[in-house]
Design a protein around this nucleic acid. Structure first.
Length: 730
DNA sequence: CGAAAGGCTCTTTTT
DNA sequence: GAGCCTTTCG
């Protein structure tokens, strides 16, 4: 097997350069995943590197899974020895192994953002701070900022510049104490604590440094400072670090991803080599040109020239509707039309938007037309209340010290344990410096806080419930334990009495099915592995990703995907770009990148829609067209207003008509015809074989001496006529 | 203790 | 328009 076969020169360089630091700048659709997998295969197959000594970091579990599959297909063997996963999963593994050194219990729980917010509110409460004055979400974000920069509460306090930041420091401090009490960590802790571990224990670091001969990081433009330092630590010995990314697709600065990581990689690694992947295999020339025009307006950017050998394609459609309902109707009926004409399958269409709230109008329209659709995102599976409740029970059984889970389910289903009782219990446990669970035990022995007999009884029966489950958990299959929890806690009856009980019950069954995969492991192992998996996975793997239906997705989530046809809705000032970015040029550039990411997902067709009025957050408001639309050269687009003036509809040529048009509108004159000799900056010299007028341009077919036959758009290709056909004849 | 009612906020969300 | 929180009342 030749792992270099079929790669273009730039890709080849990216695969073959294995010594020292390498920066791969990979434009959209440039075969990035292919390069990464081939590179690993090259290391293993050609260079004889043991998979055990390679680390590959991805940002999502999905990406990790896909990479594993492609790699196994390429190598024809499993790659278990390879360290391949997300930053968080890799760090969690290291910390379970080595965390004892920094006082971390190997059985630590990983709390998600909701748990995190709960702990922040609790901290505020304990510090007598008003959550109305100090928004818990803002504090959550500030703590995330701190942890993304390896700032401990103390260090954060030292750099605090405002009163709010001082408040944050106090909350952060308390919050960490609460986490420690429950032997819990949050997502950011996984990264920060690993870096700290390596900082404080050089011998541990050396072990890992020595092991990893080669390190690969995907989506490098979205790494934060902590992740950057982690990679720097790990690569500290061998220095073979390969990072892959595209600054133009950096859209997570609000999670403190730092574009400087990729922009200044060469500074930090002076001997770094660079591979530029600029050939696009995904989109038409027109789409690529539109995208390039949009992104070029950014100032904070290294210029990059994307090109493609794909066909010229069709102008993007800019459509204006009266409101979001009409916008949605247009999308749905257009999809229906395209599908009917067999131009695309339903699953080849995607509708993208800035905020999740926009999906509602679309969903309604799809439903009204009776067309199935796939909604990506929304409330994720493991975030659902009932699923989290069940997980909390399991966590509690596994680790009774888990105060967060205990607080979550102590009165779910209702057992008459109200706020009053809980406050009593928690203040008692705080003053005696023991976990809530220990306080419960004291209550049962009548040594706890003074409570009414009623409350006392309720607490004791909850304790007995958990004790009983814990006792039996050691010899039960995970699924049986789950069933036991459902039965003994009364959750089953509770759920069926709920509003949408049926749906919630089905989610529980789904969780149960996920638990069944752990049947072969010992009860203890099964529980631990199950809990680990679900805390690091955001969703059950796209359940009906196989269904042939259009996808509804946010622009953020669309990164890394591709579709033949892409609709971007809500191209309005305030939405895309989002109003929150108005006063910050850096954020405005990120909005632009977001738009760029959306457009570059498309292979064949792009529709950009905007509504004159839009109902969002209750009220309906008129909005101006997005400034990003102004970056699109008019000759690359067709526009249509569906409402302002019905006569204007005639200006718009439906895509279907363009696709099937035989005799086009009379084009503007052009100075090229068949037989002309021309020169192109990239392809060199050639002869025009055909010149076909399009809507307001010309598609020129050229037989190049070196590069073969290419179809080019006259306005873009900058063809220089070097010899006229008539001259040759005369 | 818990249900009902009114007030406030509101982006994106790989882990 | 919905979800979350606080307040109020039975």
């Amino acid at each position: 097997m030749d792992v270099l076969a079929g790669l273009n020169p730039a890709q080849r360089k990216a695969v073959e350069t294995i010594e020292g630091p390498l920066l791969i700048i990979a434009g959209p659709g440039s075969g990035k995943t292919r390069v990464i997998t081939h590179r690993i295969a090259y290391l293993v197959r050609v260079c004889g590197v043991s998979p055990h000594r390679i680390m590959a970091v991805t940002f999502t579990n999905k990406a990790a899974r896909e990479m594993t599959e492609r790699l196994e297909a390429l190598l024809g063997q499993t790659v278990k020895a390879l360290t391949l996963g997300t930053f968080h999963a890799i760090c969690a593994r290291i910390l379970r192994q080595e965390g004892k050194a920094i006082g971390l219990d190997p059985g630590f729980v990983i709390y998600d953002e909701e748990d995190q917010l709960g702990l922040i509110k609790q901290s505020l409460n304990e510090l007598d701070l008003d959550p109305k004055q100090y928004n818990p979400k803002a504090i959550q974000s500030a703590i995330e900022f701190a942890k993304s920069h390896i700032l401990t509460p103390k260090a954060y306090g030292e750099q605090a510049r405002s009163y709010f930041e001082e408040i944050v420091q106090r909350v952060y401090e308390r919050y960490q104490q609460l986490l420690a009490q429950s032997q819990g960590v949050d997502f950011d802790d996984l990264l920060m604590k690993t870096v700290q571990l390596f900082q404080d224990y050089p011998d541990v670091l050396v072990r890992y440094q020595s092991r990893y001969l080669h390190i690969l990081v995907d989506e490098f433009q979205d790494t934060n400072t902590t992740q950057y330092l982690l990679i720097k630590q790990l690569a500290g010995k061998h220095g073979n670090v390969c990072v892959v990314g595209d600054p133009d697709q950096s859209i997570y600065s609000w999670r403190f991803a730092d574009l400087r990581n990729i922009l200044s990689f060469e500074k930090d690694y002076p001997n770094a080599q660079i591979a530029l992947l600029e050939q696009n295999y995904r989109s038409t020339q027109t789409i690529l040109e539109v995208a390039s025009n949009i992104i070029s307006a950014n100032v904070q950017r290294k210029p990059k020239r994307l090109w493609t050998e794909n066909e010229v394609g069709i102008p993007v459609a800019i459509v204006e509707t009266f409101n979001e309902e009409e916008e949605a109707r247009f999308v749905v009926s257009e999809i229906e039309k395209l599908v009917k004409e067999k131009l695309v399958s339903p699953g080849g269409c995607a509708v993208m938007y800035r905020v999740n709230a926009q999906s509602r109008a679309l969903e309604e329209a799809f439903m009204r037309y009776g067309i199935r659709y796939k909604l990506v995102g929304g409330t994720r599976f493991y975030q659902r209340r009932e699923v989290k409740d069940m997980i909390a029970y399991l966590r509690l059984v596994h680790n009774p010290g888990d105060n967060v889970s205990l607080a979550r389910v102590i009165n779910v289903p209702g057992r008459g344990i109200g706020q009053r009782t809980l406050a009593e219990l928690s203040s008692w446990s705080k003053s005696h410096d023991v976990p809530l669970y220990a306080a419960l035990k004291q209550v049962a022995e009548k040594k706890g806080p003074p409570l009414t007999p009623r409350a006392s009884f309720a607490l004791t029966s909850f304790l007995n419930l958990i004790e009983g489950l814990s006792g039996r958990s050691r010899e039960m299959k995970l699924v049986d334990l789950l069933d036991e929890v459902l039965k003994e806690s009364g959750y089953r009856e509770y759920i069926s009495s709920e509003e949408d009980g049926e749906e919630r019950w089905e989610n529980i069954l789904e969780l149960r099915a996920a638990a069944e995969e752990y049947n072969e492991l010992s009860p203890a192992e099964a529980l631990v592995n199950f809990l680990e998996k679900i805390s690091l996975v955001s969703d059950i793997d796209e359940i009906d990703s196989l269904a042939d239906a259009p996808t509804l997705i946010t622009l953020h989530q669309a990164k890394g995907l591709e579709f033949p046809v892409v609709f971007i809705v809500g191209m309005e000032e305030g939405l895309l770009p989002h109003r929150r970015s108005f006063d910050d040029p850096a954020q405005m550039e990120e909005e632009r990148r977001l738009c760029y990411v959306g457009i570059t997902r498309a292979q064949k067709l792009v529709y950009l829609l905007r509504a004159y009025r839009r109902a969002l957050f209750g009220s309906s408001m008129a909005g101006l067209p997005s400034r990003f639309l102004e970056s699109i050269p008019p000759h690359l687009a067709t526009s249509k207003s569906k409402w302002e003036d019905e006569t204007r509809e005639h200006e718009y040529t439906p895509v279907t008509a363009i696709l099937s048009r035989q005799s086009p509108t009379p084009p503007a004159s052009i100075d090229l015809k068949a037989g002309d000799r021309v020169r192109h900056t990239r392809f060199g010299e050639g002869v025009v074989t055909d010149c076909l007028p399009t809507r307001d341009d010309h598609q020129v077919t050229v037989q190049f001496t070196e590069a073969g036959i290419k179809r080019l758009l006259a306005s873009l290709a900058h063809l220089e006529k070097i010899e006229s056909a008539s001259n040759m004849q005369s």
